[in-house]
Amino acid sequence: PGTTGSLPPTSSSMFQSQPILNQETLQQRLLTLIDGARESWTYAIFWQSSFDNTSGAAHLGWGDGYYRGEENRQRQQTTFSAAEQENRKKVLRELTSLISGSSSSSDAVVDDEVTDTEWFFLVSMTQSFTSGVGLPGQAFMSSIPIWVTGSDTLTGSGCERARQGQVFGLQTMVCVPMANGVVELGSTEPIYQNSDLMNKVRILFNFNG
């Protein structure tokens, strides 16, 4: 997906199933990774790899994600229009209704502004990457971590996901390849490469013991 447009929440074609790792375990690992970090990460996603026998290519799809939010939510300003904000709220209302069965428009979940990074995280749930394509796909194919810091660097990376991340307010994106997928982290703060985080990812997401 190459646009910043709306999220198709109920499109079954966007939600193809795939083999999954234990989701509770994944969530706990993602939470441990960024809640315990000294840096301020906005979200963490585990992109899970699967192999397509037909095309012979590896794919990365949504495994699980943890959205922590920004340190100072009030500081967050959207560059998008009021119409875009209404669209986000509408989608969130529909998703809330689908998940909980409640369609109350006064629900606190939908009353609040949907921030740019929340939207980026939500849209990520609909995305997948072929090995070698996109930031997670490039990291997975090369087995080399990718660490991009700075708005200009994200824009100039030539990667659509990085460009999207920058548009939605991110200043740092990191993709660390593992045997079963890729761990992606994003932040609205500029965070520079450090080996502590890499080591933590490798320990937490080494599913082969």
Partner: peptide, 26 residues
């Protein structure tokens, strides 16, 4: 919900719940 595999449903439900918590604590 129909059309959304369980693992995304779980992620989504968790995201919405946390969002509600953040809104109530703001």
């Amino acid at each position: 919900p129909r059309g959304i595999p369980q693992f995304r449903k779980v992620s989504l439900a968790r995201f919405l719940e946390k969002r509600k918590e953040r809104a109530m604590n703001a």
